[in-house]
Design a protein around this nucleic acid. Structure first.
Lengths: 158, 158
DNA sequence: AGAGTTAAGGTCAAAGTAAGTCAAGGAAGT
DNA sequence: ACTTCCTTGACTTACTTTGACCTTAACTCT
């Protein structure tokens, strides 16, 4: 059974793809197109178009209101460095990790196999340590792996 | 009297056989088909569809949830499966890890970037846990990452 | 200009859906 | 008898969908 949220997600991404890297939506219109509650749209945006996934949302209420979804595209190495030096920090959850990986794969900074590889290493299942330190271990692993990618990229240039 | 678990096992295997090498199940549906507790399905999966028997499980909870059972192609990933199920074991040193990675890269089972990626995750530096458990954590991470590769290979074939 | 109306979107909690865990008891094999 | 495997059910966690109520902006009419 395909999830409604997934359909809406695909729909929005399709709109972004054929055009600029952004789109303006009418919440009510979209909701009625999918025959769902308007707040469903907010749910999709909140779960599928997060900053970690590389999207930015802005909106306006009232007459002529809209929701703008912007796909963020930063320079690859800047973004990796940002992740390593600030975003990941000293602890990070599996969920946040996955969002970032989605973002990296979607922008083709990593391959889908690499995404699977990193995701596997950073899953709760794989990191068999007490929950209290899991997120710290994960952050550390993540940073090390991304660093390896940055380094590989540089190697390749030579 | 055939055991329930055996029937369920056969049923799932039959589903995989006529079609692709994988199947998506609904836990509750299957349980009610066999008139048993839903957790019985988990038991069958945990005991009969393990990695060393060549199966990989993934699942999702909530609305639109599912359990996916994937049969890994033993021929394709023979060596990887061997590493996962016997070579790595419950603990492994950084050194042994590197030797295996060299071997994998040399045989072009992984790219050099993937080698760097995995190597980074499995380095003593990255695994920030007490030395007593380091080798165990490493083994676990390694197995999970290689499994992701085997699984990606399956995916890629479609 | 101010008040009221209409047209958006936002929030949050509850209900719905589906899987995971774990422990306790039962059945079968040795 | 003892151990190992199987089965069940109570409880937990994760994700989705809906609806009631709130806020903000624009327009319209005195």
């Amino acid at each position: 059974m395909p999830r409604l949220s997934d359909s809406i997600e695909r729909f929005i991404k399709a709109m972004i793809d054929d055009g600029e890297s952004r789109v303006d939506l009418q919440r009510n219109e979209l909701a009625s197109y999918f025959s769902c509650a308007p707040s469903q749209i907010n749910y999709v945006l909140a779960t599928r178009f997060t900053l970690d996934k590389g999207y930015y949302i802005e909106s306006r209420r009232g007459g002529g209101g809209y929701i703008r979804v912007v796909r963020l595209d930063a320079d690859e190495s800047d973004y990796l460095l940002h992740l390593i030096t600030s975003r990941i920090g000293s602890a990070i959850s599996e969920n946040q990790t996955r969002q970032i990986l989605d973002c990296l794969a979607e922008r083709e900074i990593i391959t889908s196999r690499e995404k699977a590889l990193i995701g596997a290493a950073l899953s709760d299942k794989a990191i068999a340590v007490p929950i209290q330190i899991k997120d710290r271990i994960r952050a550390n692993l993540f940073r090390n792996m991304l660093t390896a990618i940055v380094y590989s990229n540089e190697e390749g240039e030579k």
